[in-house]
Design a binder for these strands. Structure first.
Lengths: 282, 282
DNA sequence: AAAACAATCTCAATAGTTGGGATTTTTGCC
DNA sequence: GGCAAAAATCCCAACTATTGAGATTGTTTT
């Protein structure tokens, strides 16, 4: 868990320096920040520059280089989740005005990796590539709800403030209850948690791994979702889509979930309008 | 030149395995291809997976992971060339229907890093992130023409077939002459070299380094460029834009170019319609 | 339940990495 | 154009971190 293949990690650590807030670094600052010796740092920088991960402007320090763009292109075309999800996004966006997107879960980050916008005035504001906040919004809950119990609990207590801020509950127990409901429903819904005036519905994307692979999310203008029936309609569509994507990734077969959970998911519908057909909400 | 910080390079070599043709790799195949021992490979893979550069699907091997998308996002927002060039692209695309894009030059690759499309039926087909072929097209020539003489010559002989295929000439001398003209004009033009029915004009982006940083390129439907005057108009616009981008990057000051070259660039116009004002095309 | 396969662990040998300081190259300045 | 300052690279001995064979654990498959 701590560190393996230290040298490689020390090189990758250089890439971690670059953030939205600080996208440019001088060797001097890197040395100060990372504590590498001068020759070592320059060796690393040469490696990264020669392969295009970094680029240096004459007297402006280093920035990320074009190789990351190339890799992103490859990733986008090859990623099974995007391949399976893109058509679903398009179908959803065509049916419900707003924006549909795929979120990837990795290392405690949520990242939008694909999106389709069908509204001319999209209110949602997370572009592809920017990490989303953990704890707020339907996508967060759709993912966290399906984490292994141990990790879920840890995350909830760690990010309790964020969950609370989203109005999910004020205590760990509250939030865990809410997440259980998400697990039961197969989707999470949120009203204006990330962006005011936006209703979001998200379902998990499972791939047969311990943790969910990500989520599929649909955001609509709140003005378009006036009654519960409409929300239920959206919810059903999102849940079905997220299930199909999961199935394509080899997740969501009964064995991947505990039997009880698997049943529950199939059993219920969106939170608000509970449909009686399968025998109540438990 | 050969290898520095071997361990880091061995890790990065893993990322190099992933291509459009082969976007999925199993550990077994990686071992065969790279010759790493089992524990070593798995150590590397763990490092790359933990940091999100790779992702593994249950029984489908590894693919590139979401971290590259995140880095690409950062790169796109921070890259000085894109920052300086984006407005130029938009202005060009608004003025001339077609598509305007920025190409980055790195490690013998041409990569589209930003593009603006203004035609509803764009004929050009290079999306952001996919490498472009070296030797064909206006962008290639705009860049190669401004390489240091030594490297330019080497490249031309190495890629002679490509240049010849583009109709630039059949011998190294021919091509070098053509490139000299590009240097003189400050732009390169091509008719249907990469995509049939498309006229492309490109200018170099210089940043005060040895090699050009990239190129700015505008492609139009050939039907829209019927006479030489129109081509000259486009050429002038592209040249001006590429100069402004270069200037923003600290390139294109007189000292960065040999005096003669610098003069020539300012002196002439597009190849086809030679303007007599400065004394012929020579 | 057993077999086949995949991933991880242990640990000693040693190959590869590191950093102080000198050196070269580049940049800024007059 | 030449000089001083800064930036990048080189050199090489010390030593630590990396490596890989083989054993072990964990995970599917039959």
């Amino acid at each position: 868990m701590t560190s393996v293949s230290g040298s490689g990690e020390r090189i990758l650590a250089i890439l971690d320096l670059f953030t939205e807030a600080r996208p440019e670094w001088t060797p001097e600052d890197m040395m100060a920040e990372l504590g590498y010796s001068r020759p070592t740092l320059y060796r690393y920088l040469k490696t990264l520059k020669d392969s295009g991960y970094l680029a240096s402007l004459p007297q402006a320090g280093f920035t990320l280089g074009p190789r990351v763009t190339e890799l992103d292109f490859l990733m986008t075309r090859a990623d099974p989740m995007i391949r399976a999800g893109q058509p679903e996004l398009e179908a959803l966006a065509a049916r419900f005005p707003g924006s549909a997107f795929l979120v990837r879960w990795y290392g405690r980050k949520l990242l939008c990796v694909a999106s389709v916008v069908s509204s001319d005035t999209p209110k949602s504001s997370y572009p592809r590539g920017r990490p989303m906040p953990l704890g707020r919004g339907a996508a967060s809950r759709a993912i966290v709800a399906f984490l292994p119990a141990r990790e879920r609990r840890k995350l909830v207590s760690e990010y309790l403030a964020q969950f609370a801020g989203a109005g999910v509950g004020t205590t760990v127990v509250d939030v865990m209850d809410a997440l259980r409901a998400v697990r039961r429903n197969g989707i999470a819904a949120a009203r204006g948690e990330v962006t005011p005036g936006v209703v979001a519905v998200a379902g998990p994307v499972l791939a047969g791994e311990q943790s969910p692979h990500g989520a599929l999310c649909l955001t609509s203008d709140a003005a378009d979702v006036t009654n519960d029936a409409r929300l239920a309609e959206i919810g059903a569509a999102v849940r079905d889509a997220s299930r199909r994507v999961s199935a394509a990734l080899g997740g969501w077969d009964e064995t991947a979930l505990s039997p009880r959970t698997a049943n529950d998911i199939h059993a219920d519908r969106v939170t608000a309008p509970r449909m009686p057909e399968h025998g109540g909400t438990r």
